[in-house]
Each structure stands twice: as structure tokens, then as C-alpha cells.
């Protein structure tokens, strides 16, 4: 049973192939994390799923229905079941609307005029642990953490089946970040939500995601359960990412695997394995193009995988 099924999704802006064929499935109630450096195409993936970015090829099936490229009119009823959270907690709230109006926006858009909007606003604020009088405030009067909670409240207003969250902890202080993740974890369990979460913070992924996919240059290079990936990554890129995560312990001198240079330009994709030039473990065989290989639900795209 899958809730969201993305298959060979491709997006290009002119000559730039931002997504070069992405495939993954998300089961109901499951949290799936997409990780990778900036420019790997993470944000484009979830925007393309939600119909906010173009996708020229491939398929996106939500609840069994093909939604790639369908007109907004047909997509609108489905949007009840699919909510988004954006990177900038304050910037994703319409600046001249009160919080009460903002979190009941989904009801108005979906034409649920019979609802008591004030009561709904109160219920939603309570759900994310914000006092009821916040309904009269404006976004610029909130801290990042509070604005983030408003974003969560709005995303959950229509009790969706899936949340697409772009860097939900970006810009939050460490002490507040935990609160948000706990809230999401809790609501997810209570409401049976599935989530696709994008982040470059691997410590966050470890605590919230059931499965994760690692993206490089608009492709998945590895995918598996969070546990497996953290314990035994097969792709060198994953290994590098995991090792580049400084721990809050001055004596933790972990074996760091240095990544050479920076991601190549999407206009000038390397031949063979696209990670070859930065890979500390590259071999002669890597001039060939690696195929996607899976065993036991752990997939990778590498010709000389780590063991």
C-alpha cells in the first residue's frame, strides 16, 4: 500500500536538468526524508509533487491517482489531503493577515463555509500549543518558532494524509527545534500522517524519518531505512555526508571523509558516475554509468559500493 508514488520524475528549466529522474514511494503514516547538498533538487521534488514546479516527465501518483500535470481545477479537491510547509516560517505567512485568518485559510479555499472559523482557529492554535489570543496577531509579531507552529497548524487544518515539509527546522534555535519535532512526531502518530521532509540536518533525520533518500545532482544515489543508512551506508557520498556532521563533543574526533570540491554544474554533468570527481573512493570502473541496484529495500547507485 502506497500513499505517494513518484516514478522517474524529471524537471528541467531550459537546458538545466534539475531533476534527472526521481523515484520513491511513501506509505501511509510513513516519514520519508530527502537529504542532499543545496542544489541537489530536493525542493524541486516536493514542489513538483504539489504542482508548484513544472515536471516534464514521469508520474506522481497520490492515493492511486495520477496528479502530474493535471489542471489546478482537478488538483484542488486533492489538496485537502496534501499540505505543505515552507522553509521560511514567517515568510510563508501572508504578511497582512492575522494568524486566525491565516490558519483558517484552507477552509475558505476549500469552500467549507459552514465551519465556525473562530472555533476552528482556537482548536488549531491549541493543537500546536499556542495561546488563543495569538489569533489576533500578525506574522511579523511572532518569533520563528511561533510562526513555525502556525505553519504546522495551517498544514493540519484539513487533516491531510500527507505533509510535504521543506526544511521545517530551518532558522530555529536548538531549544525550539526539539519542540517542533516533538509536536510533529506526536501529531503524526495521533493523526496517522505521512510526511516527506527535506532537510540537510542529518541529526534531525535520524530522529524523525523512517526511511530516507540521498540526492545528488537531481538523482537519488541511495535509499533505505534510516537505521540502515546511518549504520551501513553503501554510497560514498552518503558516507561523506554522514561524516560531515560535527558532534557537540570536543573529544569526538570522528573519521572524517573529506569531500573534494563542490558539486559540479548541472549544465555540465560529469560522464560516468556523476560523483566520480569528488569521490574519495573512485576507481577506474567509475567511468561507466552506474545503475540503480536494490537488495532488501536498500538501494544505491554506485559501481564500487562500500561494505
Amino acid at each position: 500500500m502506497t500513499l505517494l508514488s513518484v516514478d522517474n520524475l524529471k524537471t528541467s528549466y531550459g537546458p538545466v536538468n534539475v531533476l534527472a529522474g526521481i523515484s520513491f514511494d511513501v506509505a501511509p503514516g510513513e516519514t520519508y526524508a530527502l537529504v542532499g547538498e543545496s542544489g541537489s533538487g530536493k525542493t524541486t521534488v516536493i514542489r513538483a509533487i504539489a504542482g508548484l514546479a513544472p515536471a516534464q516527465e514521469g508520474s506522481v501518483k497520490f492515493d492511486g491517482q495520477q496528479i502530474r500535470g493535471i489542471p489546478e481545477r482537478s488538483l484542488r479537491p486533492l489538496r485537502k489531503d496534501m499540505a505543505m510547509m515552507f522553509q521560511d516560517p514567517v515568510g510563508s505567512l501572508s504578511p497582512r493577515m492575522t494568524i486566525g485568518k491565516l490558519i483558517t485559510e484552507p477552509y475558505k479555499i476549500q469552500g467549507m463555509r459552514d465551519r465556525d472559523l473562530d472555533a476552528e482557529a482556537k482548536r488549531l492554535l491549541e493543537m500546536v500549543n499556542l495561546p488563543a489570543h495569538f489569533a489576533n496577531r500578525y506574522p511579523y509579531q511572532l518569533s520563528g518558532g511561533q510562526a513555525r507552529r502556525v505553519g504546522v497548524a495551517r498544514a493540519l487544518a484539513l487533516e491531510p494524509k500527507l505533509i510535504l515539509a521543506d526544511e521545517p527546522t530551518a532558522g530555529l534555535d536548538v531549544s525550539v527545534q526539539g519542540e517542533l519535532l516533538n509536536l510533529l512526531n506526536d501529531l503524526r502518530e495521533r493523526l496517522g500522517l505521512a510526511m516527506v521532509i527535506i532537510t540537510h540536518n542529518l541529526s534531525v533525520v535520524k530522529h524523525v524519518a523512517d526511511r530516507m533518500g540521498i540526492m545528488y545532482l537531481g538523482r537519488l544515489v541511495e535509499e533505505g531505512t534510516t537505521e540502515t543508512i546511518f549504520e551501513s551506508p553503501r554510497h560514498p557520498y552518503t558516507r561523506c555526508l554522514l561524516s560531515a556532521n560535527p558532534e557537540p563533543d570536543p573529544d569526538a574526533r570522528l573519521e572524517r571523509i573529506a569531500l573534494k570540491g563542490e558539486p559540479p554544474s548541472l549544465l555540465n554533468r560529469p560522464t560516468g558516475c556523476e560523483f566520480r570527481e569528488r569521490c574519495p573512493f573512485s576507481q577506474n570502473i567509475c567511468t561507466n554509468t552506474p545503475a540503480w541496484e536494490t537488495s532488501d529495500g536498500h538501494g544505491h547507485r554506485c559501481l564500487a559500493p562500500l561494505t
Binding site: 489538496r79 515552507f86 510563508s92 501572508s94 504578511p95 476549500q110
Partner: peptide, 26 residues
């Protein structure tokens, strides 16, 4: 292209609503 307009679009807001309710006051 600001995030709050994207957010409205992700909820399915119509063009009239986006222009009239969210852009106009700004």
C-alpha cells in the same frame, strides 16, 4: 515567487483570491 504566495497556491487558492486577498494589500 515569495513563499507565502506559494503556500497559498499549495492550498489551492484561486488566482482571484491570490491577487485580491494576498497581493493587493501588499
Amino acid at each position: 515567487n515569495s513563499e507565502f504566495i506559494l503556500a497559498e497556491r499549495s492550498m489551492g487558492a484561486s488566482m482571484a483570491r491570490i491577487l485580491g486577498v494576498h497581493m493587493l494589500p501588499n
